[in-house]
Design a protein around this nucleic acid. Structure first.
Length: 266
DNA sequence: AATGGGACCTGCGCGC
DNA sequence: TGCGCGCAGGTCCCAT
């Protein structure tokens, strides 16, 4: 599910709901999502702690308790968080002071929860490139210039730019009118500028409309996002391009489905 | 350096 | 109707 806009939406909602709440009890229904340490130590470590800060880095949510206690949540594909009553099909439920619950939902069980003394030292976190909103046009251009990979998987490479996934990469390329198969260092200055602006635009729009609910994703309040109705190419295979009416084509790049308009995106 | 395949999981929709 | 297959918003790991 969740790319930067979805995770940012959840982060902002968590700030309103769980800041300064204490973890009263924890029920783990699917141990497989607890990646570190073992389920028992995970539970014991978090019980009684109070939420001091909520952080997002790329697609990762970090809940900070004390100085050296962090809950790190990666939702991967089908993970989401639901605030409110206790959910029977939650993989993990955290009971909070005040009577509400924070439920970790994850149909495919690919997400991961970790309890650690830090998050910045995680291998994955250390390998991340800059946040899209922290990179300037000049640096963005330099990165593309140095790469001979196709532009679409490059945008999705978390080591290069952190937070973009399969939906927003397709949307940004459509807006910028760039063929997703284009080799990155082949892009001219104007195309690079267009792509940079389009990337920021689609991410900001995603945040504004509280994410895309293409499938099971719901935000913290259990609501669907509003962005999926505004997506211009993702999931629109064979449908007419919203700009030129040409049928949208779907291909596979780097093993990921990729929709684009063969007429607009050159 | 770049690409392709498989792995991790469950469940949906499609064609036969 | 029922079944098998491909596919799904992510990331890692291996081989070439």
């Amino acid at each position: 599910m969740p790319e930067l806009p979805e995770v940012e939406t959840i982060k902002r909602q968590l700030e309103k709901r769980i800041l300064n709440k204490k973890i009263i009890s924890i029920q783990i229904n699917s141990k497989v999502v607890i990646k570190e340490p073992d389920a028992e130590s995970f539970k014991n470590g978090i019980l009684g702690e109070t939420v001091k800060e909520v952080i997002r880095r790329a697609k990762v949510l970090i809940i900070k308790f004390k100085k050296d206690k962090f809950l790190i949540i990666h939702l991967r594909i089908s993970g989401w968080l639901l605030y409110g009553k206790k959910e029977d099909n939650a993989r993990v439920s955290f009971e909070l002071s005040g009577g509400n619950f924070l439920n970790y939902m994850d149909q495919r069980l690919l997400g991961e929860l970790k309890f650690r003394s830090d998050y910045k030292d995680l291998k994955f976190i250390k390998s991340l490139g800059p946040e899209p909103f922290d990179i300037n046009l000049e640096d963005f251009g330099k990165i593309l210039k140095a790469k001979k990979t196709k532009i679409k998987p490059l945008l999705m490479d978390q080591k290069v730019i952190a937070g973009i996934g399969n939906i927003y990469a397709q949307e940004a390329l459509f807006l910028a009118k760039i063929d997703p198969k284009t080799i990155a260092n082949f892009l001219k200055e104007k195309a690079v500028t267009n792509l940079y602006k389009s990337m920021l635009l689609v991410l900001n729009e995603g945040i504004k409309y509280k994410g895309s609910s293409v499938d099971s994703y719901r935000n913290l309040e259990g609501e669907k996002g509003g962005m999926e109705k505004r997506l211009k190419v993702y999931g629109r295979e064979k449908k007419p391009c919203l700009v030129c009416q040409e049928p949208i084509k779907k291909i596979s790049i780097g093993g990921r489905g990729t929709c684009f308009c063969p007429n607009c995106q050159k």
